[in-house]
Design a protein around this nucleic acid. Structure first.
Lengths: 265, 265
DNA sequence: CGTATGATTGAACGCCGTCAATAAGAGTGG
DNA sequence: CCACTCTTATTGACGGCGTTCAATCATACG
């Protein structure tokens, strides 16, 4: 049901033919071979689907469904058998680990066109849920795993994504283990600023973006409490490093000053 | 020079023929095809070399050197071009991130027969250094990367190792962000106990092992100070959860009690 | 014996967590 | 439109956990 809606999503102009030529990275010779569902999908070039030939795309797309998920909906349930994998088409997904006593830690934020899932493992060790409203493209586990065996390029892309995530996880370990609360909050803002494409204010060189996470999530991502996050945000505000509108929109007049506040490595 | 020494290392009994048959996982049909250097090497079966056929092993081993590195020697220098990859044959390697002001965080501990390196990236973002005396088997970057392209099994093993490391990194993020100092130290001891094969005391069901890290390293791994680590260790000692001999040897009479002290997820 | 390194322990400080009150929206129903 | 509730965020006061600074001890090495 939602499949039909997204297939003609006005946001992406999904069915508009010729859109591919504008991408420039890879021109499809026989455009008619590319499934309707996949045309103008950014996961197809920048994401893992770039590792598939038209025939494989066809086969994959036969089992594929695009979904719109609202904030806080689970994409992957913890300790459950893995049945599907997904690509994120838009929005932000948070991966969360939960302790029996209720403490929790967000171990990763993922953005479009990231691949979502943990191949070669029966069940997941964390939950993945939509931090914002998201659009995803899902396909059955087995179909993808079969394709890995026949397409080295696909396997390679998955491998590179996991290496990228490993680099990011280790970067964040430094933040969690060795940075102060003030530096943590600044690092979070800098992370978001560099992963969301923010509105650029050409006049002043500043940027503006909406926080994809509420305070409680930011705290769980930084290993802090809500109160400390809030206090550090107002501290950054009073130091004129950021401005905040409507509790959600952040304006950074000078990105270098924000970066300096991270005590960057 | 050290190559010749390790080739006949009495510890591994490297050249003793027929040792392979005892492994059981994979019987080499033409044992004479397996390079001398690789026989009875555990990285060949459990490590990434298990993804290579005899011919590829031959080619790789022509560029391979086994080294013994002493504690604190760097295996991978940060911000330097990557020229070689390695397998850990014995000992423990620590991956460290350093901040300009001197703060540092150990982002991973690696054990035999782990693969060491970051494929597909020009330079490393962290340093890798021997936490204990180690033995490694090193080979040039290009040789391995060429083999990835021709052996899907090798690529697959590298991918699985990176997924394993990603899982471990995210587990540790929970420890760094949400556990108390006492829980962190207990978690560290538990991690070592499950990654080193410890001496098992069959009478009492306890275990005994040597800490591969000194207090300063433990602190850098846990995001704490040396003093806090020391205090928490004596607290665990006074709670009869562990005993410590010679500052290095740890005895855990009851592993379940240690696990409980981690507030395990 | 003197020095260097690593580890433990104590005392005092301070950052961040806890508890609590307040405020601002958003949604619901009268 | 207002009254009410629920969620989210901010701010203050206080206390505790972990850091900082410092002294002491053990072991290894020249």
């Amino acid at each position: 049901m939602s499949t039909d809606r997204t297939r003609t999503d006005p946001l992406t102009g999904a069915v508009r033919s010729g859109a591919d030529a504008q991408d420039g990275r890879r021109l499809d010779i026989h455009n008619s071979d590319i499934p309707l569902l996949c045309r103008a999908c950014e996961a197809r070039h920048k994401g893992i689907c770039g590792g598939l030939d038209p025939d494989q795309l066809q086969r994959l797309s036969r089992h594929t469904h695009k979904h719109v998920l609202r904030e806080n909906v689970e994409v992957i349930a913890p300790q459950q058998p893995v049945t599907t994998y997904s690509n994120i088409l838009s929005g932000v997904v948070k991966l969360t680990k939960l302790m029996p006593d209720g403490r929790q830690q967000i171990v990763s934020l993922q953005f479009a066109p990231d691949f979502l899932g943990r191949p070669f493992k029966a069940s997941n060790e964390y939950s993945a849920e939509a931090a914002t409203d998201i659009r995803v493209c899902s396909f059955p586990r087995k179909v993808l795993e079969d394709m890995i065996d026949e397409s080295p390029d696909l396997g390679r892309r998955l491998y590179e994504q996991s290496l990228k995530e490993l680099d990011e996880a280790r970067d964040w370990m430094l933040t969690l283990g060795r940075r102060t609360a003030a530096e943590k909050v600044a690092s979070f803002l800098y992370l978001i600023a560099t992963h969301i494409d923010p509105e650029v204010d050409l006049v002043h060189g500043g940027i503006r973006f909406d926080l994809p996470l509420k305070r409680a999530d930011i705290a769980d991502f930084l290993g802090l409490t809500i109160e400390t996050v809030s206090r550090q945000l107002t501290k950054l505000r009073k130091a004129n490093i950021i401005e905040i509108e409507m509790n959600r929109t952040v304006i950074v007049p000078n990105v270098e000053r924000l970066k300096a506040a991270c005590a960057a490595s």
